[in-house]
Design a protein around this nucleic acid. Sequence first.
DNA 1: CTGTTAATGCAACTGAGTTGCAAATAAAGC
DNA 2: GCTTTATTTGCAACTCAGTTGCATTAACAG
Lengths: 126, 126
Amino acid sequence: MGIIRKTKSVKKILNEFQVESKALSTLDLIHRFEAEFNKTTIYRVLDKLEDDGVLHSFQGKNGVKWYAKCEDCTEHKHSDIHPHFQCLSCGQTDCLDFSIHIPKIPNREVSFSQFLLQGRCEKCLV
Amino acid sequence: MGIIRKTKSVKKILNEFQVESKALSTLDLIHRFEAEFNKTTIYRVLDKLEDDGVLHSFQGKNGVKWYAKCEDCTEHKHSDIHPHFQCLSCGQTDCLDFSIHIPKIPNREVSFSQFLLQGRCEKCLV
DNA sequence: CTGTTAATGCAACTGAGTTGCAAATAAAGC
DNA sequence: GCTTTATTTGCAACTCAGTTGCATTAACAG
């Protein structure tokens, strides 16, 4: 069950994803909004936005969950499967805009995938 | 810094990865050896085996860390980058034996990747 | 404005993983 | 086999990311 009421927290969190076009971790958001919202609220709102197909999530390397905006997903179908890149220097994480071709795997049914790349981003590659 | 002494725990954990050719989670191993070794030991030994390039690790979906045997890796070079598949029914997780072609990403340096697929395995696809 | 109910904040919690330190033990040398 | 050294182990306590229950607050419909 997703978002039912457009609360202050829903609006502000969504705005954050609109303003920046990169992935944000749960900790990012908890820090940014710590004066305004409880971390419980952050976790719950992110959960609901994912249920609604507005955001998608992936596990970062050290056990932290990241979220990014979906393109063209709905509540029932997450079709936006693409790699994510996390910079090991500055920590910034964003979606890469190429698709991974997953070959048909015999005798298995794939319903979810996540692909995480790590290294150094443009700003840190000096 | 990796393994220096061939202790009982090192031998038994390595044997577990020899016997089964699939990935094992930290929790799998903690449960299997709970009568014999402390979970601290399990975590430490896995860490050291990864340092040595004997095992590689990846994050499962729900924050649990998984390990699998490496092929041809050493302490200094992890060259064994391949997808992992986790069954959402039985939980079994193993390495898939195809490579993913990562296109050259402009202005970034990739030093690590992990690719997790989830769905249903052969046994659970009925 | 009122009533309903979803959302929020809080404290306490869970679970995966980590740390510090004393005790145990693997290995080398004799 | 014994001694010494240094690594490893087990334990208790911890951290951290995320979750839960419940009383209070606030969004929304009328």
